[in-house]
């Protein structure tokens, strides 16, 4: 076996299915910093940069993580999924996004991309998640506007819509 050596300034990532070159990253930069500052994928938000708020949530190989806590150069061989891939190819909203709009689950909107990632991931894994499961699954996504009631209503809408299909 040989070590995989990655130049921390210049490397490639696989984001939303496309191989993307990164040039001139700061050594030790987080995936969040690279997504926003190097690649202009600004849908992913940055706030606390210590894993507390969840606004930077992305999937790494299908696993929900805070992109602020992932060193970008350490995930060159993984598939990264960001909020930019959630809408349908024609640009219309996914059912989760539409439910957030329908239920008024968006106020200032800063937490929304992270919440949409977390909710999408949860409902893909557990389509019939009960209220307690939902609350525990969203413990790492802070919203300071809504009080969460309308976010929970949006999730209920998606669960019942999908169950009816």
């Amino acid at each position: 076996m040989t070590d995989v050596i990655v130049d921390e300034r210049d490397f490639e990532l696989t984001i939303n299915g496309a191989r993307v070159p990164v040039r001139g990253a700061a050594p030790g930069a987080s995936l969040l910093q690279v997504l926003r500052d190097q690649l202009q994928l600004t849908g992913t938000k940055g706030a606390c940069e210590e894993g507390e708020c969840g606004s930077c949530s992305v999937l790494v190989d299908g696993v929900l993580m805070c992109s602020c806590l992932v060193m970008a150069a350490s995930v060159t061989d993984t598939a990264i999924t960001t909020i930019e891939s959630v809408a349908r190819p024609d640009g219309s909203f996914s059912d989760v996004q539409q439910a957030f709009v329908d239920c008024g689950a968006v106020q200032c909107g800063f937490c929304t991309p992270g919440l949409v990632m977390a909710v999408t991931d949860l409902l893909n894994q557990q389509p019939h998640a009960d209220r307690e499961t939902v609350r525990e699954a969203l413990a790492g996504n802070l919203c300071r506007c809504t009080g969460y009631g309308r976010i929970l209503a949006a999730i209920d809408q998606v669960i019942s819509q999908r169950a009816a299909q």
């Binding site: 894993g51 969840g54 929900l64 805070c66 413990a139 790492g140």
Partner: peptide, 9 residues
């Protein structure tokens, strides 16, 4: 520990 995001990492 933390949240799902933290526990995954």
């Amino acid at each position: 520990v933390g949240s799902p995001q933290i526990r995954n990492a």
